[in-house]
Amino acid sequence: MDSERKQSSVKAFEGIHGVQLVPRWPFMIQEIPQDVNFSSSCKHDDTTTANHKILMQRIWQMRPPSLTPIHCSHQGDRCVAETIANVLTSLPFIFLGFQAPRRNLTSTLYANSLIGVGVASSLYHSSRGKARKYLRWADYTMIATATVCLSRALRNENPRFLMAASALCLPFQPLIVSAVHTGMMEVAFARRASTKPELRTAHSLHTLSSALGGALFIADDLFPETPYLHAAWHLAAAIGVGTCNKLLE
């Protein structure tokens, strides 16, 4: 009976122009479980993100030692009095930055970097907790930046490769950058003092303060329990920086 009804319904529409009956619907409707698909796609995305993070961590761990940020072990500021001494002896760098000659762009950058040294040192010594190690890194990096700016202000003909390499190494090896550019400054200071008698007194004072500052810096590392060594190093370094300003006048 069902087949006869279907055939009669088909014959009823055969005479109508433009009507074509298809025995079966050409499209198949299939219900897709949305929750399963979305959950599986989310799991796939999470797995991809996790694998990407692991890959980046492995690449970072395989970096050469020269690209490893420094880990500072300074254990000063054990009491309020030592903290106050370290902060107060950081302020002369800010004063020297304001007093430094600003004849051109390079000397202006150096003067501003000295102000940055005083600010970074003050923030580090007054800090506590987890922020302390990051501020110590900023302190070292700011000192290295000041040495780079000083050597640039003294010698505009410095090789571009050296300046680019110094800028690249600043975040990772500030101590090495400081040593290289401090050595360049010492050579320039000695050469100018040999030809300009008015600089000989400043150069002699600079040599003494640099030697004293180097000894205090080493002693501060070897005898971390001795108080106020770091503050004494601040003062010796400030005297050395003040004599360097004579080169820019």
Results as ranks from 00 to 15, higher is better:
residue 203 H to A: 15
residue 151 S to Y: 02
residue 146 A to N: 05
residue 115 I to H: 00
residue 114 L to R: 02
residue 210 S to W: 06
residue 38 F to Y: 09
residue 38 F to L: 14
residue 6 K to A: 13
residue 55 L to G: 05
residue 2 D to E: 06
residue 73 S to G: 12
residue 140 Y to D: 02
residue 156 N to H: 12
residue 100 A to G: 09
residue 82 E to K: 03
residue 136 R to M: 15
residue 15 G to D: 07
residue 148 V to Q: 00
residue 123 L to D: 00
residue 219 A to F: 05
residue 60 W to N: 08
residue 220 D to G: 12
residue 96 L to P: 01
residue 2 D to P: 12
residue 177 V to R: 00
residue 229 L to T: 07
residue 219 A to R: 05
residue 48 T to Y: 06
residue 21 L to K: 09
residue 231 A to Y: 00
residue 27 F to Q: 06
residue 136 R to Y: 12
residue 156 N to S: 09
residue 74 H to I: 07
residue 28 M to V: 13
residue 164 A to I: 11
residue 70 I to A: 04
residue 157 E to L: 11
residue 241 V to D: 01
residue 135 L to F: 11
residue 42 C to W: 08
residue 51 N to Y: 11
residue 21 L to M: 09
residue 22 V to K: 14
residue 94 I to Q: 01
residue 53 K to H: 12
residue 7 Q to Y: 10
residue 24 R to M: 10
residue 235 L to W: 04
residue 168 L to G: 09
residue 232 A to Q: 07
residue 126 S to C: 09
residue 148 V to P: 00
residue 155 R to H: 06
residue 56 M to C: 11
residue 111 A to S: 14
residue 85 A to I: 00
residue 26 P to R: 12
residue 88 L to M: 09
residue 117 V to P: 01
residue 194 S to Y: 14
residue 8 S to W: 08
residue 218 I to A: 10
residue 230 H to E: 04
residue 49 T to N: 13
residue 194 S to D: 08
residue 130 K to C: 08
residue 205 L to Q: 03
residue 36 V to F: 11
residue 153 A to I: 02
residue 122 S to D: 01
residue 79 C to H: 11
residue 97 G to Q: 02
residue 51 N to I: 13
residue 69 P to T: 03
residue 120 A to S: 07
residue 124 Y to C: 03
residue 86 N to L: 07
residue 2 D to S: 13
residue 246 K to A: 08
residue 170 L to C: 10
residue 213 G to Q: 04
residue 35 D to S: 11
residue 168 L to V: 14
residue 230 H to F: 05
residue 88 L to C: 05
residue 132 R to S: 12
residue 91 L to T: 11
residue 174 P to L: 03
residue 135 L to W: 04
residue 39 S to N: 05
residue 11 K to R: 14
residue 192 R to I: 15
residue 163 M to G: 06
residue 166 S to C: 15
residue 216 L to S: 04
residue 238 A to F: 04
residue 50 A to C: 07
residue 184 M to H: 10
residue 111 A to E: 00
residue 95 F to N: 01
residue 188 A to V: 09
residue 4 E to K: 14
residue 58 R to F: 10
residue 192 R to L: 07
residue 36 V to W: 13
residue 147 T to N: 03
residue 145 T to P: 00
residue 39 S to P: 02
residue 22 V to P: 00
residue 173 Q to M: 08
residue 150 L to N: 01
residue 58 R to W: 15
residue 193 A to G: 14
residue 243 T to M: 13
residue 113 S to C: 05
residue 155 R to I: 05
residue 86 N to Y: 04
residue 43 K to M: 12
residue 137 W to G: 03
residue 155 R to C: 13
residue 39 S to Y: 05
residue 123 L to G: 00
residue 226 T to P: 05
residue 219 A to D: 14
residue 129 G to N: 12
residue 20 Q to V: 11
residue 208 L to G: 03
residue 226 T to S: 09
residue 220 D to Q: 14
residue 12 A to E: 14
residue 3 S to F: 13
residue 242 G to S: 09
residue 231 A to M: 04
residue 145 T to L: 01
residue 227 P to A: 01
residue 134 Y to T: 06
residue 244 C to L: 13
residue 9 S to R: 10
residue 49 T to G: 04
residue 61 Q to W: 08
residue 129 G to S: 11
residue 46 D to I: 09
residue 158 N to L: 15
residue 215 A to Y: 03
residue 128 R to Y: 03
residue 74 H to M: 10
residue 6 K to D: 14
residue 242 G to R: 01
residue 189 F to E: 00
residue 237 A to M: 15
residue 171 P to K: 02
residue 63 R to S: 13
residue 49 T to V: 14
residue 178 S to G: 12
residue 202 A to Y: 01
residue 71 H to R: 15
